[in-house]
């Protein structure tokens, strides 16, 4: 389900309303909504999970397609490209805080409002741990410590639930692939956020090779072919509806044992550097697709 992109007229009306101090009605009962703009998707995800609706966010349509959770309210303004959030628009929105993703260029943003960099992945730290710390830090910046505590508690509960649903799973280890072309693939390994989720829900990762700081690696099919023969392929993409289409587009992959034997599960896209909401989404989708009884394969 995809909400239509708001028309320009609506967007302008929303800004004018926002500029006049009329906050969106949502969450009106809680503490006054802080005026926060999100310059990246990872920060936006956690903001929304903390109950804070950002004034604006870049590439909204693509957020809805690729990140999906938590859902984005209609009131949020389009901010343009992630790599170049529109500064004139941001200035007009007059946020009190801008939440940027780690690694993005923040110096122009800092001329508009204080910038909080949301970094759920940090070198040398387990992603789950770093995500928790980043969430607490962001919440503290916004005075939402209580919401952060309950977010973390809910996260723990969701993972525990997923672990329980998956406890009956007897299949082989998983190979997590988010993109593929020709004979190359992007896989997730030991220091990814997904690894921490797999550890919690009691599943194994088939790929144990070296990975980047974000937990991914690009490999050739030769490396995938060398994985444990009982490996199951998990596709983290919403661009192919099922394994059949995937294979039709990439005939070379037919040589891999897990594709010959159709051990393929297609999950949706997930933001791999998104922190707790991404972990929750990954765990829930895994449980939905892999748990015995409702294995939606192929």
């Amino acid at each position: 389900m995809r909400a239509p992109r708001p028309s320009r007229r609506e967007a302008v009306a929303a800004i004018l309303a926002a500029g006049a101090g009329l906050h969106p009605a949502r969450n009106a009962a809680a503490a006054p909504m802080p005026r926060v703009a999100a310059a990246g998707w990872a920060g936006a995800q956690t903001l929304l999970a903390l109950g804070v609706v950002p004034l604006a966010l870049p590439e909204i349509a693509r957020y809805r397609a690729l990140v999906a959770e938590p859902p984005l309210p209609e009131s949020v303004q389009e901010l343009g490209l992630r790599s170049e959030p529109n500064l004139e628009l941001l200035t007009a929105l007059a946020p009190h805080l801008i939440v940027a993703d780690a690694g993005s260029v923040t110096s122009p943003l800092a001329r508009i409002a204080p910038v909080a960099t949301f970094a759920p992945l940090r070198p040398g730290r387990r992603p789950a741990e770093a995500a928790r710390e980043a969430t607490l830090a962001l919440a503290a910046r916004l005075g939402r410590d209580a919401e952060a505590q309950s977010l973390i508690a809910a996260h723990e509960a969701r993972l525990a639930g997923a672990a329980e649903r998956l406890s009956g799973d007897r299949g082989g280890p998983l190979c997590l692939v988010s993109d593929a072309f020709g004979n190359r693939a992007l896989v997730f390994g030991g220091n990814s956020l997904y690894q921490d989720v797999l550890d919690r829900v009691g599943l194994r990762n088939a790929f144990t090779g070296a990975t980047s700081a974000w937990g991914h690696a690009t490999v050739g099919l030769d490396q995938l072919a060398a994985l444990d023969p009982t490996t199951r392929l998990v596709l983290l993409t919403s661009r192919v509806p099922d394994a059949r289409t995937f294979l039709a587009l990439r005939p070379l992959w037919r040589t891999l044992p897990f594709l010959r034997e159709e051990r393929v599960t297609v999950l949706a896209d997930i933001l791999f550097y998104g922190g707790l909401p991404s972990a929750d989404r990954f765990a829930r989708l895994l449980a939905e697709r892999l748990a015995p009884g409702n294995a939606a394969r192929g």
């Binding site: 993109d179 072309f181 004979n183 190359r184 693939a185 690009t218 050739g220 030769d222 070379l252």
Partner: peptide, 18 residues
């Protein structure tokens, strides 16, 4: 992303197909 993964000229193989 997929096309960038592939397009730089990798020679790794997994069979005699190519």
């Amino acid at each position: 992303i997929g096309i960038y993964l592939w397009g730089a000229g990798f020679l790794s193989q997994q069979g005699w197909g190519v």
